[in-house]
Amino acid sequence: MARILIVDNCEIIRNLLTDFLEELGHTVETAIHGQDGIDKALNNEYDAVFCDIHMPKKNGYQVYVEVSGKKAALPFIMTDSLPDDLANMAVSRGAHTCLSKPFTLEQVRTALSEIFIKDTADESR
């Protein structure tokens, strides 16, 4: 199963995603703001990152740009409470998708399966 990093300053979302993803059998770590997210993503190995947009220290777009600059292959799922340009920009630069809050568990499942199917497809090639 996969190692997943959750970056969100909102505790309830961190908890929800942690519980849900662990239930699915993944290993989950969390970061509580942008800078925290960057540090963890660069210093540890993950298979996917959930990343909020509006956060203190560094916003989600900055997190995505810094991390993907060094780890281009790491898939990002942006989560956003407001449909705005930052999420769009991240997606246009290569983030996998953006889920607008409040998202359903179904949306989370779909996004993850898209990533991992793509991964296995990449590996089998």
């Binding site: 409470s81 409040p102 359903t104």
Partner: peptide, 13 residues
């Protein structure tokens, strides 16, 4: 949206 996300997610979960 954040608390709503929690409510929606947890109730579904």
């Amino acid at each position: 949206n954040n608390p709503l996300g929690g409510i929606l997610g947890y109730s579904q979960f």
